[in-house]
């Protein structure tokens, strides 16, 4: 087994053990907390469905961040790209209300990809042409994206029948169906999951076998070599941010077209940012991303039950667990050395 998988799994258990220890200090029984988490996430088909529902946008935002990482770029802007992608989905779903599903969904998803991608490409362009660091620009573009989204949600596509900050409901042809009951129970888990998994398979193929993935990775991992081979790094950067942003835009499909059937303000729930953790924990690999997204999805669902079934800890423990896992992975060099000392 490759060393890094090993280290990741160890990090996982260290993160979990530390969090459970914390729960113990707070007066909970760690075994109980653990069981609540597991039961909450996998206890019934509906619970599994919710775990999958939470994992679905994470798969895509994780994929988005991973794609940029392959090209040596750190896309902190997935949340903003996703937000705009979601607004685009809602907008087309309202404007072209009566389209049949066969036309509606491809159209909407393409549009979300283009809008999210365009937003990402903007950061890519600023990096390629003006040398602005993408971490900075994507963070700042997030704020602009939120502002734009507010404008469209509240002023242009506002739902007249609700007090909440949300758009009107999209047409029936735009609504992505729920997964069959035997998988997702009565949860809102929907077919976007299948789309996400397909895209992850395609991602693996592109990165491993095609010239597109090859040049993206070459430009990212060995930019000086690429430049000397005549590769246009700037173009690769813009392309990478376009695709990364597009994938983030698609991450909006599940919450917008599969769950609420409208774009609510703040519908991303920070999924774009958690995508960073997913991509890092999954080490950019297709299987790793699936694993990390499912783990985080399950944790989110499992943790909801903590509020009900424990006395001293709340669902925030899940955030603590996620943070500790990421920290453990991030410090894996140190851990690995420790490991070597222990075992040698």
């Amino acid at each position: 087994m490759p060393k890094h998988i090993y280290v990741t799994i160890v990090s996982l258990f260290i993160g979990l053990a530390l969090s459970l220890t914390l729960a113990t200090i707070l007066g909970e029984n760690p075994g109980h907390v653990f069981l609540v988490l597991v039961r909450g996430a996998f206890g019934s088909a509906t619970d599994v469905g919710y775990s999958l529902f939470y994992a679905t946008p994470l798969l895509l935002s994780g994929l988005s961040v991973a794609w940029a990482l392959q090209a040596g770029l750190f896309n902190i802007g997935a949340d903003g790209q996703m937000t705009l992608g979601g607004v685009a989905l809602a907008a087309i779903g309202i404007l072209a209300h009566d389209l049949p599903m066969l036309v509606a969904l491809p159209l909407a998803l393409t549009l979300a990809f283009l809008v999210g991608g365009g937003w990402g490409a903007l950061a890519g362009w600023m990096k390629a042409r003006r040398g602005c660091h993408e971490v900075l620009t994507t963070i700042l573009l997030n704020f602009i994206a939120y502002g734009l989204a507010s404008f469209f949600i509240l002023r242009v596509f506002k739902n007249p029948e609700s007090q909440g900050p949300e758009t009107a409901v999209v047409g029936g042809g735009f609504q992505i169906g729920a997964l069959p009951q035997w998988i997702g129970g009565t949860s809102p888990a929907n077919w976007t999951l299948a789309l996400a998994l397909c895209l992850i398979v395609i991602y693996g193929f592109i990165m491993g076998r095609t010239s597109l993935g090859y040049f993206q990775r070459l430009a990212g991992e060995a930019p000086q070599v690429a430049a000397r081979a005549g590769v246009n790094i700037g173009r690769q950067t813009i392309l990478a941010m376009f695709i990364s942003g597009g994938l983030a835009g698609l991450a909006a499909a599940s919450p917008v077209l599969g769950f609420a059937f409208k774009a609510r303000e703040g519908f991303t729930s920070g999924v774009g940012f958690i995508g960073i953790a997913v991509a890092l924990l999954g080490r950019k690999s297709p299987l790793g991303i699936v694993f990390a997204a499912l783990l985080f999805g399950a944790l989110t669902k499992g943790a909801l039950e903590l509020d009900m079934d424990t006395r001293f800890v709340s669902r925030d423990l899940a955030t603590v667990i996620q943070a500790l896992i990421v920290l453990a992975v991030a410090s894996q060099v140190g851990l690995h050395n420790l490991w070597r000392k222990v075992t040698s």
Binding site: Y54, T186, P255, S269, L304, D307, M308, R315
Partner: peptide, 22 residues
């Protein structure tokens, strides 16, 4: 009494459902 605070819009539904299921 059992109280749940919801982090976001997507969490209302599972929270209500969990109470009902219990």
């Amino acid at each position: 009494l059992k109280m749940v605070e919801s982090p976001d819009d997507a969490a209302f539904e599972p929270a209500l459902r969990s109470f009902a299921e219990r």
